[in-house]
Amino acid sequence: MAKLEKKDIRKCYVNWMTFALGCQNMERMMAPAFARMMGLVVDKLYDKKEDKIKCMQRHTQFFNTEEAMGAIIPGVILGMEEKRAEGEDIPDELIQSTKTALMGPFAGIGDSLIGGTLRPILCSIAMGLAAGGNLAGPAFYCVAWLGIIIPLTWILFSRGYKFGINATDMVFAGGRKDAITRGANLIGLIVVGAISAQYVTANTGWAYVSGDMEITLQGILDSILPCLLPLLLTLLAWYLLDKKGMKIGKVFVVFIVIAVAASLTGLLII
């Protein structure tokens, strides 16, 4: 018996679209909105308090995508979480890896299709219609944007939900759980590496100047491996969290100290 009704799915969709960027932050990006969405249905999914807590904790991890095309991801995860609550033995890491593996591609697709294609096209048409201060321009944009984006995001979210349920059934029926989990894990790791190169930015401003000659440290680093500093910072964060067992709040403070010191000394520039 399915634990979630149609109206729960709709509620999750509305809340995802509304709050996706409501607590956007540099550390986990859209994670608070994801945790909120799970928090809305967690009472229906689980009876025991500790199961509810664990369910929400699963979704406080870093999550970032383009909110419209990426609406498919919270849909898929909702389906998987429902199956898990019904007793399927879905490991935490499969849920986490699925989110990680999907968020990058859908951010890429969404940024180019919505922000890079749909919105500019609609804006251009609207600008043409608005010549001389004609209200038809803005009116066209409003109708066209809402008429496309609301059905599109709802279809992505609700299809994602059904897909999450079906995909889960398929994986478990075939007895391929371990292989799929391992595969999703590897894909997740590769994608995390890729998006950390994309999102973490750190450039050094140190240079050695002698007469006409100027050797910049950044130039040397780039010739070794581009984005070396972002990679080292990411590994530092992982090292402190995993190997040193530091609490996230402490690591946060370490990074603030690094930012202040490095910015004032010119070690890191923007």
Binding site: E93, T234, A237, L268
Partner: peptide
Amino acid sequence: SLADIFQVLGGILPAVGFGLLIKYTL
């Protein structure tokens, strides 16, 4: 200088989120 610090911090802070993600995936 304050604006610079914020931008530098904004640039390196995602590393903490990824560090946490790596911890759980690795």
